[in-house]
């Protein structure tokens, strides 16, 4: 059970770090997102089976599970990114603060402004760093240049990128390193001021140093945002998340406090997965 012990250690370390920082309890209990009996299909193929889950506000929830088990699908269902995919359909409910996001009268655009998303592969627009970050506020109607600069600066600071790029905001975003590009994408998502931030393996293409910066960042951000993150790295899940959900073949097997899930998993499959017996 050495693996279990090492996880316990990680979680414990984190708790210490956290309580040193502030006096808030580790996990908040206010429900931000409430998903009930979600079935999701790509055409004929069913990708999610009857998933029910709540996501707590101002906390980090991590999704783990073997490749192809539906983590990304579930994540994208939370801000209706799947709408773009041809033939995708679903049944069940997804409530954001008690409102059904798939209701016919819901405006996807305003939904996505509240529920931002960062992708696995960084996707900077082929424009300047400034324009990348300013894009969201600009399309939302913010025209005033001074206001935009302020938002850009704050977002870049929050994404821990400001110091590296403040002298070259007009340079092309494609000239940044991979890690910087990913933080730029996070800054870009923050600039629209969302409540919820969905991250699909945000650190999987990064080197260890960049990864740890992004992890620090997530840790800071959870004070203001609800964060849902998909990760293949279980140490990472243990390090940064408050809650962890384990998916397997389209089913949600188990969701619990990170500490509990990693130390005393209720299901056999979960235990097998985190101890590395399959996946």
């Amino acid at each position: 059970m050495t693996i279990m012990q090492s996880f316990t250690e990680l979680v414990h370390q984190r708790q210490q770090r956290e309580s040193a920082k502030r006096n808030r309890p580790v996990e908040s209990e206010v429900t931000k997102l409430d998903v009930r009996n979600l079935n999701f299909f790509y055409g004929e193929k069913q990708a999610l089976f009857d998933v029910s889950m709540t996501v707590a506000e101002r906390a980090v929830t991590a999704f783990i599970g073997p490749s192809g088990c539906g983590k990304s699908t579930f994540l994208r269902a939370l801000n209706r990114m799947n709408d773009i995919i041809e033939g995708a359909h679903h049944n069940g409910t997804v409530l954001l603060e008690g409102q059904e996001i798939y209701a016919p009268d819901v405006d996807v655009v305003s939904l996505r402004k509240r529920v931002g998303m960062v992708f696995q592969k960084s996707t900077p627009f082929p424009k300047s760093i400034f324009d990348n970050v300013a894009y969201g506020p600009k399309i939302a109607g913010q025209r005033n240049h001074k206001g935009l600069s302020e938002i850009v600066e704050q977002s870049l600071k929050r994404a821990a990128l400001w110091d590296e790029v403040k002298d070259r905001l007009q340079d092309s975003a494609l000239a940044l390193s991979g890690g910087q590009q990913q933080r730029l994408c996070i800054a870009r998502a923050l600039a629209t001021n969302p409540d919820v931030l969905l991250m699909d393996e945000p650190a999987s293409a990064l080197d260890p140093a960049s990864t740890s910066r992004v992890e620090d960042l997530i840790f800071e951000l959870k004070q203001n945002y609800t964060i849902v993150i998909v990760t293949h790295n279980m140490q990472q899940a243990a390090r940064i998340s408050d809650w962890t959900a384990f998916f397997y073949q389209g089913y949600l097997i188990e969701k619990d406090h990170t500490q509990k899930l990693f130390t005393t998993p209720k299901k056999k499959q979960t235990e097998d997965y985190i101890t590395g017996r399959f996946g």
């Binding site: 954001l96 409102q99 996001i101 819901v106 405006d107 509240r114 923050l190 001021n193 409540d195």
Partner: peptide, 14 residues
């Protein structure tokens, strides 16, 4: 914080 926390969420099309 960029803005104070939002109160009252409105997703409806208008």
């Amino acid at each position: 914080p960029l803005t104070p926390p939002k109160t009252g969420l409105r997703l409806q099309k208008q």
